[in-house]
Amino acid sequence: MTRDELEQALADLPFRLLRRLGRAIAGPPALRMGKRRLMHTIMAGAEANIERIEAAIRTHQAEQQALAAVPAPAGGASSEHKSGKPADQRALLEGIGVPEPRPFVPDDWQVEAVEALERGDVIVSVPTGSGKTYVAVEATRRAMHEDRTVVYTSPLKALSNTKYTEFCKIFGPEFVGIITGDRRDNPTAPILIMTTEILRNLLYDAAGGEIDVRLDTLGLVIIDESQFLGDPERGVVWEETIIFCPSQARLLLLSASIGNPQELAAWLTSIRPAPCHLVRHQHRSVPLRAGYLHPNGKLTPLFRTVTMPPSPSQAVLHPEAKRLFTMFEEDTLYARRSG
């Protein structure tokens, strides 16, 4: 092996092997070297250690051959995201469009949530836009049948208004009322939409002896966007509402996906008369795909697979997206440096 050949072979070695070689030749300081300095060090000590270097190169070549001989695993569930051919760029946009109209059939979890409400409180923690409203409407309908008052709370006045319009359409305006900081429409209706703060104040008044008639017949409290419990400023209001909620009323907590729904459920079980049922899933009703759009207008999949990777550790960028993003970063870095 000539010196040039040796250098070429070294450049092909993976960094970890180079580092091992460098350590054998130059000792621990080699662990702090970059690739170029490592190669330089190894080449400087090449005469004395030629056997060791050649052995490392042979091992590496053998490994490469072994890898090439074994066919790539045929898309196992977990390895799919890491190996295999990257997704075709056209596959990202495949199947785009309007789905066939289908008669509405409630999902299993929606039915489960409504039924569980007969037995106790329910927490629903599902991705945004997967149909929490259906559960709320269905539960309201059942409570109406039993002549019980329903309170629906949301964090924002704007959301309350949207829900008010929606519920008016479903149940008829005479059955729905709204109370916000400065609006009172039909406040004796069996279905009341309000912000969470207002419900908290009503509960305070009830506890203070000024009994509010509606609270006697209160059968169901729906708290939308319950992940606001963790809001630094307003979270305390959600907590108070849940603590002071009358025990005869059922609680239905609707929340986006959160990290610890079991903990919330366990808490509710510990303070409420009936055990709390948790309904959760990560499944989106409309599947999501991630794309990368380069400023030049080129669109590629963001991840190696068209479907979303199940966890950050399995998220591998699509080679094309990675190349374009690296290019973008280099361009902007240069632009920033040159002012």
């Binding site: 785009i96 789905p99 669109l299």
Partner: peptide, 28 residues
């Protein structure tokens, strides 16, 4: 993560889209 989930949750309308898209476009 919750905020990104909230944002990407807006992608894909039930009954109107068969797939939703979250497109990342770079900026400095």
């Amino acid at each position: 993560i919750a905020e990104v989930a909230q944002i990407s949750g807006r992608a894909g309308r039930r009954g109107k889209d068969s797939v939703g898209f979250a497109i990342v476009t770079p900026s400095p």
